[in-house]
Amino acid sequence: MSDTQTFLLDGEEVPFAPGQTVIQAALAAGRYIPHLCYHPEFKPHGSCKVCTVRADGRTAAACTLPAQAGLAVESETEELKELRHTLVQMLFAEGNHFCPSCEQSGNCMLQALGYELGVMTAGFRHFFPIRPVDASHPDILLDFNRCILCELCVRASCEVDDKCVFALSGRGIGKHLIVNAESGRLADTEVALSDKSLQVCPVGVILRKRVGFAVPIGQRKYDLRPIRATALESAPRGPQAPGPCPSCEEGS
């Protein structure tokens, strides 16, 4: 007896392996669901809510929703596109996102999602928060203005680098990224250029100095291919793709 089970995504069958969440199975099957804080190498986080789908009538984040046989998942509906559109607008309004002067422009997932979802304006009043940059480190710049609080660097630094260079403090709209030093400066942390945490920022917060414009604007990742295509390329393929069991998810 085959152990391949399936659920329905916008009416089409998607196979999944036990323990996979909806987004893991969908991406493995070559089906794109817009997402931001989800990263195929890390445990699903469920904070940005961009991957919100409707499953058996109820809305849920596809990245943390366990796949179940027969589940009817809707993703490409007008309602959900509108919700995702608004969420991306909110992120643009919350931070200081000035793409023309950002060296991650073209490689930025938030920007690419904006293109994908047709976000022409943040729409809301911009918060223009005051978030000073940290240029203390000789080789790394932290520009908190662009932080979307996805915690990927926090997760990578703790889980892969075993350093916990990054953490979050504050709460609500005052939530913000901090570094592991009494001085509050990156230069006084254990961060190293080889750290995983430096590779995972989906936006332009964590930057290596002096290399930002090696590839000219206009020839970068999402300039060439839309995120819908690139996300599928970087997703693990096949229904056997490893998916962390959400039941074993460790909070710390």
């Binding site: 200081n96 996102h97 000035f98 911009h126 005051i130 000073p132």
Partner: peptide
């Protein structure tokens, strides 16, 4: 659309 470069004086 966003305030752009001039808005970078906002802090």
């Amino acid at each position: 659309v966003t305030g752009g470069l001039p808005a970078q004086r906002n802090h």
